[in-house]
Design a protein around this nucleic acid. Sequence first.
DNA 1: TTCAACAGAAACAGATCTGTTTCCTTATGT
DNA 2: ACATAAGGAAACAGATCTGTTTCTGTTGAA
Lengths: 188, 188
Amino acid sequence: MPRPSRRDHLIETAITLFCEHGYHATGIDRILAAAGVSKKTMYVYFRSKEELIYAALRQYDGVFRNNFMKAVEAASDTPKGKLLAIFDVAEVWFGDNQFFGCMFINAVGEYSEKDSPVREISKQFKKLLRYYVVSLAKEAGADDADELADELCLLLEGAIVTAQVSDDTKAASIARKMAVLAIEDAVG
Amino acid sequence: MPRPSRRDHLIETAITLFCEHGYHATGIDRILAAAGVSKKTMYVYFRSKEELIYAALRQYDGVFRNNFMKAVEAASDTPKGKLLAIFDVAEVWFGDNQFFGCMFINAVGEYSEKDSPVREISKQFKKLLRYYVVSLAKEAGADDADELADELCLLLEGAIVTAQVSDDTKAASIARKMAVLAIEDAVG
DNA sequence: TTCAACAGAAACAGATCTGTTTCCTTATGT
DNA sequence: ACATAAGGAAACAGATCTGTTTCTGTTGAA
């Protein structure tokens, strides 16, 4: 039974490189060099590059949502405040030098087959993040928590892409302002 | 002096394949086979694959914005109606079987270098589309046309990504509903 | 008809990619 | 101390990629 540390380190390195350079553009050798792991060892843990991609996406899914939820919880005590904190947390994220957009959005751009595991994992990620927003929307007393969550999630997607493509540092605050309108409309 | 038709056909074919499969995953040979053009001829018009990518993005920039603006103009007579028509036009776009998200968003996901031509062209596209929305916002009598345009453009980005990644057919109408709120807030 | 330019087909070069295998070193447990 | 397993380094195979070149046919104009 192999120790998990090597496998995890490989996944962490892969996440970083896939985020920055994309999936097809990131060769196995580059990941291995960055991780300081031999090719032989990698192929013990992952039977192919595809499997490493899936593992990286699944790992990031958990880690990102966990960090995101924790940051939101820490940013505010009130339900309504937490809904808005989503965009404050996003703003910090966008300001990171290592911000290259959403790993899942970028992944779907490279893998267009409808039933591809990449798309399934990405869709699942967005679904799970939405569940969390739905729960916050319920706590905030929204008339239709699902609808409000749809709106806030769409705003977040828009902010991510605007920050990434248009290189707009105001993206998070633009989204936040609209979030105020959406929340008022939904809770009123 | 070469006839432009071959060059244009090559660009059109490249756009289709880059949209569906991405940039790194689309090899030259695949484009050439689909276009029915020889490699030799291609390298007369484009000195490298990179140049073909730039040409495809620049061509799509013009064609897409032109079609988009025409569709918006045709959908409504009033300024406010045109602002909302953005999302009706988007809905039709998302419903297309050949919808694979925004070519520029996908491109930026694959080319992360800050000063890359791909990023420059993509940023320029978003900027030009925003100029159009600003002009519509001015016509609609927005207090701050720039701010409203920022908001509506962010909603459009969010709708595109939500339709693409979450495979959500409601994406356009969710964005449209928020657009109503934003317009009311801005014109009030 | 003849000549020149064009363009397709295909071979080719060189690089890079994924994935396998071999060889050797280094730990670790008995 | 010795046997065994793990893992690095690197060669290797086979595929694929970009870009060049060569050869051949075809077309259009003088």
